[in-house]
Amino acid sequence: MQRVNMIMAESPGLITICLLGYLLSAECTVFLDHENANKILNRPKRYNSGKLEEFVQGNLERECMEEKCSFEEAREVFENTERTTEFWKQYVDGDQCESNPCLNGGSCKDDINSYECWCPFGFEGKNCELDVTCNIKNGRCEQFCKNSADNKVVCSCTEGYRLAENQKSCEPAVPFPCGRVSVSQTSKLTRAETVFPDVDYVNSTEAETILDNITQSTQSFNDFTRVVGGEDAKPGQFPWQVVLNGKVDAFCGGSIVNEKWIVTAAHCVETGVKITVVAGEHNIEETEHTEQKRNVIRIIPHHNYNAAINKYNHDIALLELDEPLVLNSYVTPICIADKEYTNIFLKFGSGYVSGWGRVFHKGRSALVLQYLRVPLVDRATCLRSTKFTIYNNMFCAGFHEGGRDSCQGDSGGPHVTEVEGTSFLTGIISWGEECAMKGKYGIYTKVSRYVNWIKEKTKLT
């Protein structure tokens, strides 16, 4: 034993070699072989497995989906700052455009905790909710729209109204504003409101030439003092309507412009014939205590009207009353817009006519005020429907199939267009061939041609 100890002390290297040989010859039971080890760690190889990531292109799944990435790591994937920024906006807080917040056709661009709407022409605001041009839906104005110097929408209202708090709607500024039905039992019968379409306001006024200088022999019209197929109006439903009495009662109609003036057809009036105007009328054979009678003290036909040349060209006249009318729910003026808007309103496509005229061709006159909704007829169809001249200051309205029309005794009465609950004068009943005849239409004086003249002559002093 002493000898062994001496050998170990003198030859430590020998001992180490012996131990190493023993270990190498022993069977290893701690580690699995290569094949079995792979069965336990069965993990798919990654895209760049075996390579240094710093030297390969980034992978979106590896960089940002398996674990949260930084902007720089995302930049490695896209290799483009702009594309990385677009991805980053949604990656950080989701897609803010998912709810489609942009209105009126706006395009949404996502941002971090926010979004941006790219608005089409005519709109602005956070969600493109603000109209900035009158060309689109009248700028959301209830009545009139004008573009300011910086191309912003400025709404306005006709006389007797003021802008509401929203700067879009119009509200009454006087007790009985024009064009409004205020009798409670008839307010439910107000005709369907007309909503502004998209309009090209630059070209809204037709490029028409008034044929002022045409000389033409007097034409022989049949029954051209021209509501057939209409309905009984309720008291106060058309408070701007008046009836004219002269040699015979209810020979023509008219509309209240203001307390002192009536507008009617020029062919209705004769110099030297006494005319009485009755406002607030409903049943011409009954006294309903809503009527107001006034005498006409002055007749002003349009300066281009000449019955000797043509009885229905420039067929418009103004009547001055001896005493002002007292405005109330049964006696209310009709609204008159400017030339541009009167023309736009007419193009809405349908209007209402009213009167006490004959209820059928050569038949009896109506006792109760009649009204009828009539569609506008395109000019080409209008011209083809008659052998008589249709001037540019006239328009056609009615039904091709016949059966409904204005008729004798309705002449001078109103053709009105309702705009968001307020009625505007767009025409004056003038003439036609018979009444409600198939293929024939009622012919009306186009008020847009005469609004400046009306307003100039009827100013209240």
Rank of each mutant, 00 (worst) to 15 (best):
Q2L: 15
R3G: 10
V4P: 07
N5E: 07
M6S: 14
I7W: 13
E10Y: 04
E10W: 15
P12Y: 13
I15V: 07
T16H: 09
T16Q: 06
I17P: 00
L24Y: 06
L24V: 08
S25W: 14
C28F: 01
C28E: 03
T29E: 12
V30Y: 15
V30A: 09
V30E: 10
F31M: 15
L32G: 14
L32M: 14
L32N: 15
L32D: 15
L32V: 12
D33I: 07
E35W: 06
E35Q: 10
E35G: 15
E35D: 15
N38Y: 14
K39R: 13
I40L: 11
I40C: 05
N42V: 10
P44T: 15
P44A: 12
K45E: 14
K45W: 07
R46M: 13
S49F: 07
G50P: 11
L52V: 07
E54S: 11
E54V: 05
F55I: 13
F55A: 15
G58R: 10
L60V: 15
E61P: 12
R62C: 04
E66N: 07
E66P: 07
E67S: 06
S70D: 07
S70M: 08
E72R: 12
E73N: 10
R75Y: 06
E76K: 15
E79Q: 15
N80M: 04
T81A: 10
T81F: 07
T81S: 09
T84M: 04
T85Q: 09
K89P: 15
Q90I: 11
Y91Q: 15
D93Y: 11
G94W: 06
Q96R: 15
Q96Y: 10
E98N: 14
S99M: 15
N100M: 07
P101A: 05
G106C: 03
G106T: 03
S107I: 03
C108Y: 02
K109H: 11
D110P: 15
D110Y: 12
N113E: 14
Y115T: 04
W118R: 12
C119N: 02
P120Y: 05
F121A: 10
F121N: 09
G122R: 05
K126T: 09
N127R: 09
N127W: 09
E129V: 03
L130T: 13
D131N: 15
D131A: 04
C134G: 02
I136Q: 15
I136M: 15
I136G: 10
I136Y: 12
R140M: 08
C141M: 00
K146R: 12
S148H: 11
N151D: 10
K152Q: 10
V154M: 12
S156R: 10
C157V: 01
C157R: 00
C157T: 00
T158S: 08
E159T: 08
Y161I: 01
Y161Q: 02
R162M: 11
A164Q: 07
N166Q: 03
Q167L: 12
Q167G: 06
S169L: 05
S169Q: 08
C170L: 01
E171W: 07
A173W: 05
P175M: 10
C178W: 00
T186P: 13
T186F: 11
S187K: 09
S187N: 06
K188V: 11
L189N: 14
T190Y: 07
A192L: 11
A192H: 08
A192N: 11
E193C: 05
E193I: 13
T194R: 09
V195K: 07
F196H: 10
D198F: 07
V199Q: 14
D200N: 07
Y201K: 11
N203F: 05
S204W: 07
S204A: 05
I210H: 09
L211K: 08
L211Y: 10
D212Q: 11
I214M: 07
I214N: 09
T215Y: 07
T215E: 06
Q216D: 09
Q216W: 08
S217N: 11
S217E: 11
S220M: 06
N222F: 12
F224E: 06
F224L: 12
V227C: 09
E231Q: 08
Q237A: 07
W240C: 00
Q241F: 14
Q241V: 09
V243A: 13
L244W: 01
G246F: 01
D249P: 02
A250D: 05
F251C: 05
G253V: 12
K260Q: 04
I262R: 01
I262W: 00
A265P: 04
H267D: 03
E270M: 03
T271G: 03
T276R: 03
A279C: 03
T287L: 13
T287E: 11
H289K: 12
K293V: 13
K293M: 06
K293L: 14
K293E: 13
N295H: 05
R298C: 02
R298P: 00
P301D: 03
H302K: 02
N304Y: 12
Y305L: 02
A307M: 11
A308G: 12
N310K: 06
H314V: 03
D315R: 01
D315I: 00
D315M: 00
L318I: 04
L318M: 03
L318C: 03
E320V: 00
E320H: 02
P324H: 04
Y330N: 05
V331E: 00
P333M: 01
C335Q: 01
I336W: 00
I336Y: 02
A337I: 00
D338A: 07
D338T: 14
K339G: 07
E340V: 14
Y341T: 15
F345A: 05
S350C: 08
G351V: 01
V353E: 01
R358F: 11
F360R: 14
H361K: 15
K362R: 13
K362Q: 07
R364T: 12
S365L: 06
V368N: 06
Y371R: 13
Y371A: 13
R373Q: 15
R373E: 05
D378A: 07
R379S: 13
A380Y: 12
T381A: 13
L383Y: 11
R384H: 13
R384N: 15
T386M: 15
N393R: 03
M394N: 11
M394I: 11
F395A: 01
C396S: 01
C396L: 01
A397H: 01
A397G: 07
A397I: 02
F399V: 13
H400Q: 12
E401C: 05
G402F: 14
G402Q: 15
G402P: 10
G402K: 14
R404S: 15
D405K: 09
D405M: 13
C407S: 04
G409Y: 12
S411Q: 14
G412E: 04
G412K: 03
E418F: 09
T426L: 01
T426N: 00
G427T: 00
I428A: 00
E433Y: 06
E433R: 06
C435K: 04
C435N: 04
A436D: 14
A436G: 10
M437I: 12
K440H: 12
G442M: 09
I443F: 07
I443Y: 06
T445Q: 05
K446V: 02
V451S: 14
K457Q: 05
K459P: 04
L460Q: 13
T461I: 08
